Amino acid sequence: MPPTFTARDCIKAARSAAQNSCVRIGRREGWTVIWDDKLATPDADQAAMLPLDQLLMFTDDQFDAFQEALRDGSAEEGQCVQIDRSPTGRYTFTARLSTHLPGQQTALHFDFDEFEAFMDGVRNREFELNQFATVAQ
């Protein structure tokens, strides 16, 4: 069973400005989540559990394969995350049904700067498993 995640478990790419909203990645106990911190309420406790309907959740192996495909420029069918770009330049992240937990239809929406910061983090290996303090918990 997947663990619960908190905002404290999630990091953003170094390229993201401190006060800007962004794509956040959390990893622990064999699982990885993608979260949009714009969904947090201003009074949110960093230790409070993130709602499942705000997360895309995958196994670490699925997310590692996704990152590798992005770095290689081959993120197509078979990867755990579907990224669609709208005509207005917004990016929507959804889970491919074959890799996501059943029953979740989460869609996360990011602007160009958020997406580019995420991609920079992927290219610079900022979301690798060894970057997360909570992995062993």
Score class of each variant (00 low, 15 high):
residue 87 P to N: 08
residue 93 F to D: 04
residue 98 S to P: 02
residue 88 T to M: 07
residue 57 M to W: 02
residue 86 S to T: 15
residue 77 E to R: 11
residue 42 P to S: 09
residue 46 Q to N: 10
residue 56 L to I: 11
residue 93 F to R: 03
residue 30 G to C: 05
residue 73 G to H: 08
residue 92 T to I: 14
residue 53 D to Q: 12
residue 34 I to E: 00
residue 117 A to M: 09
residue 126 E to T: 09
residue 44 A to N: 08
residue 109 H to I: 12
residue 62 Q to F: 00
residue 74 S to Y: 04
residue 87 P to L: 09
residue 22 C to T: 14
residue 17 A to M: 08
residue 95 A to I: 01
residue 106 T to I: 13
residue 48 A to Y: 03
residue 120 D to N: 12
residue 66 F to I: 06
residue 54 Q to W: 08
residue 98 S to R: 15
residue 44 A to L: 11
residue 39 L to W: 04
residue 66 F to D: 05
residue 37 D to I: 04
residue 31 W to R: 09
residue 36 D to M: 05
residue 63 F to G: 00
residue 2 P to C: 04
residue 38 K to Y: 04
residue 38 K to E: 08
residue 12 K to E: 01
residue 46 Q to E: 12
residue 102 P to Y: 05
residue 85 R to E: 15
residue 56 L to F: 06
residue 19 Q to S: 09
residue 32 T to R: 04
residue 25 I to W: 01
residue 100 H to Y: 09
residue 71 R to D: 05
residue 81 V to L: 03
residue 127 F to V: 12
residue 76 E to S: 14
residue 9 D to R: 00
residue 90 R to Q: 14
residue 118 F to A: 04
residue 50 L to Y: 02
residue 79 Q to F: 07
residue 85 R to S: 10
residue 130 N to E: 15
residue 111 D to H: 14
residue 107 A to S: 15
residue 54 Q to G: 10
residue 105 Q to R: 13
residue 114 E to I: 07
residue 74 S to N: 12
residue 63 F to S: 03
residue 75 A to E: 11
residue 2 P to T: 03
residue 41 T to C: 07
residue 126 E to A: 07
residue 82 Q to P: 01
residue 67 Q to L: 12
residue 4 T to W: 02
residue 122 V to C: 05
residue 45 D to L: 12
residue 58 F to G: 03
residue 108 L to C: 06
residue 37 D to P: 03
residue 127 F to I: 12
residue 58 F to K: 09
residue 119 M to W: 10
residue 117 A to S: 15
residue 45 D to W: 10
residue 68 E to I: 11
residue 69 A to R: 05
residue 70 L to S: 06
residue 9 D to Y: 01
residue 19 Q to A: 13
residue 12 K to W: 01
residue 96 R to G: 04
residue 13 A to I: 04
residue 90 R to E: 14
residue 88 T to F: 06
residue 27 R to Y: 00
residue 51 P to C: 11
residue 51 P to R: 14
residue 128 E to K: 11
residue 29 E to H: 08
residue 97 L to A: 15
residue 34 I to T: 01
residue 19 Q to V: 05
residue 58 F to T: 07
